[in-house]
């Protein structure tokens, strides 16, 4: 599965498209991590726990999007966009969407 965030898949011809595919996940950090992060907020710097968590979640959301594309018979997803929102405090929502296509 090829993922791009431009209009085309460079070097390939788009044979057909299947419309929008998307994947999302909402993840919450456990209380322990929240507490650690609040300590870290004092000295600043990277919150490794959160980086990891968001990365994992984003990967899960992407996997779900690719699974949808596979079901439709696509082999590439164009113009992929990531969106992160914290709709519920303490929980992050990762959303990814793009256009499923079959390239040759």
């Amino acid at each position: 599965m090829i993922l791009t965030n431009v209009e085309t898949v460079p070097g390939k011809r788009i044979a057909e498209h299947f419309g929008v595919v998307s994947g999302s996940t909402v993840r919450a950090k456990h209380v322990g991590r929240d507490i650690m992060a609040s300590f870290k907020n004092i000295i600043g710097g990277e919150l490794k726990g959160y980086t990891e968590l968001l990365n994992d979640s984003r990967k899960q959301a992407t996997d779900r999007m690719m699974e949808q594309a596979r079901q439709l018979g696509a082999n590439a997803i164009l113009n992929v966009r990531f969106a992160t929102s914290s709709v519920a405090q303490g929980a992050s929502e990762l959303f990814v969407y793009g256009t499923a296509v079959r390239v040759e």
Binding site: I14, H17, F18, G19, S24, T25, Q68, Q71, L72
Partner: peptide
């Protein structure tokens, strides 16, 4: 661009 309408069989998210 050719569009092939297809329905998703099962929902992976839900």
């Amino acid at each position: 661009m050719k569009y092939t309408p297809k329905e998703l069989q099962d929902d992976v998210t839900i």
